[in-house]
Design a protein around this nucleic acid. Structure first.
Lengths: 148, 148
DNA sequence: CTTAACTGATACTATATTGATATCAATTAA
DNA sequence: TTAATTGATATCAATATAGTATCAGTTAAG
């Protein structure tokens, strides 16, 4: 069971790169090279993040992408929702489509509890937090800590 | 993001059925009908659970499947591992294949923490616990509470 | 001792998801 | 004017998920 797909994985890395260069534009190409992300794949992810108002773009020469939303306001939960759909434990088993007596389903209680625990754990992790951790590690040993 | 696939979903239901009939054999057919699980699909899941010593089978007429392992010892985490692979947050990002400087990767710490939280939450939920919850609900209202 | 109800094993199909690549138009700084 | 860029799609391959079909072997029961 893989919790983060490449989509989300790459998106986190790209956001960390942009958050580190806050206030200036960075091209998809440079992000792709810096973090070893397939270029065209990355571009689609960036477009998706624009649509969700996490970042903005500027076209043309010297264009690129820039952080828009406060990195502390971007949670891993949000990124999972964007790229993998909302966190839910079981698609059909405990939901109205299939579960006729939803209210009485004893499993549902457990499932909902876990669902909220998983979500809240991922909500604790923001791009801002990750960036600070990364910068702290770099101060201790400037060459060792990188994202990937 | 779907945490439980049909495999795991159906396996849980089948185990609850077998746990409820502890000590006697139950055919794949009757489990399939009772819980509305595709018959041939279910049979593969049952075979897999035999391989993992959760249940045993008896061939021939009046044969079927029976609980082997103590239901309280069967966790949802185990079932996820069997049918969806070990719970891991990111397949490649933070693992040796890709992550060269694994020890210094600052994301890794967060990721491992979440991984263990998710795992331990699912470990709290055993087939035994679910069955007791189910039986308790049936005592309150004998017709309302079912698995699906 | 035959038959029907079973499991064991495996092959197959369909669909969805994931990961990746390619193309071309539009924009813009130099 | 041109080269570097994003915007928008189309396409493809690999893998995972969900489900179906088939046939051989086993066994209880008539």
């Amino acid at each position: 069971m893989k919790v983060l797909t490449k989509n989300t994985d790459y998106a986190i890395r790209a956001l960390l790169a942009l958050a580190a260069k806050k206030g200036s534009y960075m091209s998809a190409k440079s992000i792709a090279i810096e973090h070893d992300i397939p270029y065209q794949f990355l571009r689609r992810l960036l477009q998706e993040m624009i649509r969700h108002n996490l970042i903005v773009s500027k076209e043309g020469v010297r264009g690129g992408f820039m952080m828009q939303k406060d990195p502390d306001e971007i949670t891993v939960t949000q990124l999972i929702e964007i790229f993998q759909g909302k966190v839910q434990v079981s698609e059909c088993m405990f939901r109205k489509q299939i579960c006729g007596n939803r209210a009485n389903c004893v499993l549902r209680h457990e499932i909902m509890r876990i669902e909220s625990v998983v979500q809240s754990e991922f909500e604790k992790v923001t791009i801002g937090k990750l960036l600070r951790d990364l910068e702290a590690a770099n101060q201790v040993n400037p060459t060792a800590a990188t994202i990937s």
